[in-house]
Design a protein around this nucleic acid. Structure first.
Lengths: 135, 135
DNA sequence: ATAAATATAGTTAATATTAAACTAATTGGG
DNA sequence: CCCAATTAGTTTAATATTAACTATATTTAT
């Protein structure tokens, strides 16, 4: 594959992600949450420790510190010390946090869904498979 | 398509972009340029005005101001006033800027290419077509 | 077992990026 | 022509990130 084609592919992919984020950000903000905070909430069950969240979400650790502070202040998550390892903070969703997460994910899914309808079900499955190979 | 599948697809795409950027950033920095500055150089021929660059690259106008300042100071680009519209700054690549852009794009293409070889030529074409439909 | 060396969790301080507000130039409608 | 509305780019204030730090845990050597 030629260099320019690779760049074309890269650019398409990059712009898709960037434009989708730009599109949903206002609606999420109206809901009272930022995009990355939503992603944090969404991964919290699977990765209850800040460092793990940072790695899973591909965001820096200090950002997690900041988001966790805000989310905790907003009572969307709770934080306790992990007795097994005193360095660790064990995080958990509050009921309101879980509700907001669901609403936010629904918004995102809806926005992305609006793009996805341009593809047939078979094409969507194909896209998923191709992206999985690349990830 | 179910909500969770949409999220899965979203997440795959987002993570591909984020991880690719993380992968090439150090090499580009060693070359003396930041990722977004490289993208700016790459689009400069097609979009010689800062506002157009901001829109094309999906980055905010103030960021363009900052990057342009740095790139101009590094003598990678030049800036002149557009006589047709005195508000506009007409930008152009210097020879060194063009050389650095080529080298940077080659690095990026190489990194992305390392992922793309996981797909056959037909699959790459299919991916491109699907992403074009979504963009 | 235990001390030194290394690694890991999270935060803080310095730097970079972005959103919001601003100034200057242009365009379009009365 | 001239005033309201747009557009280009910058500056300032808020936000996020990188780099450096503190505290706890683990590993290695003896």
């Amino acid at each position: 594959m030629a260099k320019t084609d690779i760049m074309k592919l890269w650019s398409l992919n990059y712009r898709l992600v960037a434009s989708m984020l730009g599109e949903v950000a206002p609606a999420l903000r109206a809901l009272g949450i930022e995009v990355k905070e939503l992603f944090l909430l969404a991964e919290l069950d699977a990765h209850p420790h800040p460092a793990a969240l940072a790695e899973a979400l591909l965001i820096p650790k200090p950002s997690v510190t900041v988001y966790v502070k805000r989310l905790e202040a907003a009572e969307l998550i709770r934080r306790e010390i992990d007795n097994a390892d005193l360095r660790r903070h064990k995080l958990s969703l509050t009921p309101e946090g879980r509700k907001l997460m669901s609403a936010g994910l629904a918004l995102l899914a809806e926005a992305f869904g609006r793009r996805l309808v341009r593809l047939s079900a078979a094409q969507q499955a194909e896209l998923k498979s191709l992206l999985e190979k690349l990830g």
